[in-house]
């Protein structure tokens, strides 16, 4: 994994080249303000990494992008997050439909305690009446999805096995693969490699790199080396604010802000 070249943003007709616009977005947990007037434009088809010290709000920002934070109850927000031309914080947005377009991969692989086959189809089955797809179609979908994440050859003879029995690396690949049948626009990843060993990290990073162009990927990471080798653009956050957002190489080679420079030099954080 040495290819860190910047692929140009995909130009898809009808889109402005961006997948997510965050405008003046602030977020409070109860009385505690976690995000302050965040403005971000995330380019279509690129891998954008979010870095910053613990507690800087990067995970909160990520989790706001498919409204998974709302489950905690005492969350209050202002501003807007626009995806596919629609403010996802609007009243008339169905979070189920939103999450079909904006998938998430968690830090700790969280396959459901059902078979590999059913894990891949769980999302799709949640969105369609039973019997909507034929058995044949479903089998093809499972094969395509698992092939996409490089898991098919390893598990094709054991699709009935419980997914929780797989290795952590396989589990994480499955968690990415089960988003595929939903054809998401955007995949959010919250430290997707931190539970894995070095070899696993390398293979997952390769997988993520191969998804460049097909999906817009936003990835939170604690690992600056990972942000540097696996992302196209990089956002540096501190204390709930965006400090700097630029192409990854620029951010690491020529940081504009002193705080960014100090952080990437490892002076704090």
């Amino acid at each position: 994994m040495t290819s860190t070249h910047l692929s140009p943003p995909l130009q898809i007709p009808g889109r402005d080249g961006y997948s997510i616009h965050v405008n003046d977005f602030s977020l409070w947990y109860g009385d505690f303000q976690a995000l302050f007037n965040v403005n971000i434009d995330i380019k279509q088809g690129l891998i954008t990494a979010m870095i910053g010290p613990s507690g800087c709000g990067k995970t909160t920002m990520l989790r706001s992008m498919n409204r998974i934070n709302e489950r905690y109850g005492n969350v209050k927000t202002t501003g807007s997050i626009t995806i596919l031309g629609k403010n996802i914080l609007d009243e008339d947005v169905s979070v189920a439909t939103l999450r079909k377009s904006v998938g998430m991969v968690f830090q700790r692989p969280n396959p459901l305690p059902i078979s590999i086959f059913d894990n891949v189809l769980f999302g799709l089955k949640s969105h369609t009446p039973s019997g909507y797809y034929s058995r044949r179609e479903l089998q093809d979908l499972v094969e395509q999805s698992l092939t996409e994440v490089g898991l098919w050859s390893e598990v094709k003879d054991q699709l009935k096995r419980k997914a929780t029995e797989l290795t952590l690396e396989q589990q994480q690949k499955l968690c990415i693969g089960r988003l595929m049948p939903l054809k998401p626009e955007i995949i959010l990843m919250d430290e997707p490699c931190s539970a894995l060993d070095a070899a696993g990290i390398e293979r997952i990073e390769a997988l993520i790199g191969g998804m460049r162009g097909k999906f817009t990927i936003v990835m939170v990471t604690h690992n600056m080396a990972q942000a540097r080798r696996a992302s196209d653009e990089c956002i540096f956050m501190l204390m709930g604010e965006i400090i700097e957002h630029s192409p990854t190489m620029d951010l690491f080679m020529n940081p504009v802000h002193e705080k960014t420079a100090m952080y990437i030099e490892g002076r704090y954080g």
């Binding site: 596919l84 031309g85 629609k86 609007d90 008339d92 947005v93 169905s94 189920a96 439909t97 009446p129």
Partner: peptide, 19 residues
């Protein structure tokens, strides 16, 4: 208010059923 066409995340008929 956005119409259905402008709202890519409006609930589908199946989702209304789910709800």
């Amino acid at each position: 208010m956005h119409s259905q066409a402008q709202n890519p995340f409006g609930p589908t008929p199946y989702e209304r059923k789910k709800e």
